[in-house]
Amino acid sequence: MPHDHHHDHDHALLPPDPALRVRALETILTRKGLVDPAAIDEILDTYENKVGPQNGARVVARAWRDPAFLQALRDDTTAVLADMGLIGRQGEHVVVVENAPEVHNVVVCTLCSCYPWPLLGIPPTWYKSDAYRARVVREPRAVLADFGLTLPEEQKVRVWDSTAEIRYLVLPMRPEGSEGLSEDELMQWVTRDSMIGTGLPQRPGGGA
């Protein structure tokens, strides 16, 4: 495999407009029998309707309520998630990192945009942005301030750079006021960003 130029960047042969570029590739791949249109529909249905942050939120809510589940999650996260049907593409190996009064965890992928798809779905634009990838390893507290989050000085920050196929799910601390709630109710408190580390759980419907 050459180091750099695959034939002077073959993609430049396609139309420059990205929408036309995608349409051209779709036509080529479909007519050549390399892509099944039914598979395209199925993939989109999966990520638009089935897989999203609600999956991770269920894991967090269950961990908040059930100490035995939390311990099992600590012992072998991937096995527990496999039992729940939450392992798969871009989430084959998962480690849960727990927030505590002394430590707050934040996840990034500085080299691309690795993200735990089976637990959180497709990453938001900010997660894939140059600004987030470049800055959060060097100045996590300044980046968290961009999200309106200020950590207490006694809480250290651990930034997890997902350089391999290990995906990290942040287990946020259970918030005050959430006592006695069911798993389904607790899930409403678990925001996507709280499972990446750029936010905290929120009382549903706003307010503190």
Binding site: P140, R141, V157, D161, T163
Partner: peptide
Amino acid sequence: ERAGDEVMID
């Protein structure tokens, strides 16, 4: 930003 902050890398 704070002594003791860490970056974890695989």
